[in-house]
Simulated assay, not measured.
Amino acid sequence: MAISDRRADDFEECSEINLTPFIDVILVLLIITMIAAQASSVAQPVDLPRSGAKPVAADARPVVVTVRADRTLVVNDRPVSRPGLRRALITAGLRRDDRVLLAADRSLSYAMVMDALDALRDAGYTRVALVGRERER
């Protein structure tokens, strides 16, 4: 152990930046943002079927049309009638060349899902992606 000539009160001023508190704050903000993004996503009580397809990148502001088990249509948490579907999609800020996400309850028949697709096509929207849950591995 070496003995120093310096006294404890002779410290030099340190001009380095301590990044540890800055990184801690950034990580906390990242976690808060991740939790808030999950809480703000559109979630309807729909029992989706499972799919083995690879997930695709989501649009910046996706518009989700949900067909519930009782055959009601919902556009981003707002119930709509079939005749009012076009107006609801335009109100949601969707253009005709944008992609529409269609989530249908798994208890619905194929014909009911096709009715929802027909309603979207009648409203002028042909770019439709089906929403499903990932298969458990």
Rank of each mutant, 00 (worst) to 15 (best):
M1N: 13
A2W: 03
A2P: 02
A2Q: 12
I3L: 10
I3E: 13
R6H: 12
R6K: 13
E12I: 08
E12P: 01
E13L: 07
C14S: 09
S15G: 09
N18K: 15
N18P: 01
L19G: 10
L19V: 12
P21R: 00
P21D: 00
P21K: 00
F22V: 14
F22T: 15
F22G: 13
I23T: 08
D24C: 12
V25L: 10
L27K: 06
L27Y: 02
L27G: 02
V28N: 08
V28A: 13
L29A: 13
L29W: 10
L29P: 07
L30C: 10
I31Q: 11
M34Q: 13
M34S: 15
M34E: 13
I35P: 01
I35Y: 10
I35A: 14
A37N: 05
Q38E: 07
Q38L: 06
A39N: 06
A39V: 10
A39L: 11
S40V: 11
S40M: 07
S41T: 08
V42I: 08
A43E: 04
A43T: 09
P45E: 08
V46W: 01
V46T: 14
D47L: 09
L48I: 10
L48C: 08
L48A: 06
P49N: 05
P49K: 09
S51P: 03
S51I: 06
G52L: 05
A53F: 05
A53V: 06
A53K: 11
V56N: 08
A57S: 09
A57G: 04
A58L: 11
R61A: 08
R61F: 05
V64G: 00
V65R: 04
T66L: 02
T66C: 03
V67Y: 08
R68Q: 14
A69P: 04
A69N: 12
T72P: 00
L73H: 01
L73N: 01
V74C: 02
V74Q: 05
V74K: 05
N76R: 04
N76A: 01
D77Q: 14
R78S: 11
V80Q: 00
S81Y: 01
S81V: 02
S81Q: 04
R82V: 15
P83I: 10
G84H: 01
G84I: 00
L85A: 10
L85Q: 05
R86Q: 07
R86F: 01
R86G: 02
R87P: 00
R87I: 01
I90A: 04
I90P: 01
T91M: 05
G93P: 00
G93E: 10
L94F: 04
L94D: 04
D97C: 04
D97P: 00
D97M: 03
D98R: 07
R99A: 00
R99Y: 00
V100Q: 07
L101W: 12
L102I: 12
A103G: 10
A103V: 13
R106F: 01
L108R: 13
Y110P: 05
A111D: 06
A111T: 12
M112I: 05
V113S: 03
V113C: 03
D115V: 11
D118V: 11
D118L: 09
A119G: 07
A119K: 12
L120C: 15
L120K: 15
L120Q: 14
D122L: 14
G124Q: 07
Y125K: 05
T126H: 15
T126A: 12
R127Q: 13
V128M: 14
A129C: 02
L130I: 15
R133V: 15
E134C: 06
E134P: 07
E136V: 11
E136F: 09
R137M: 01
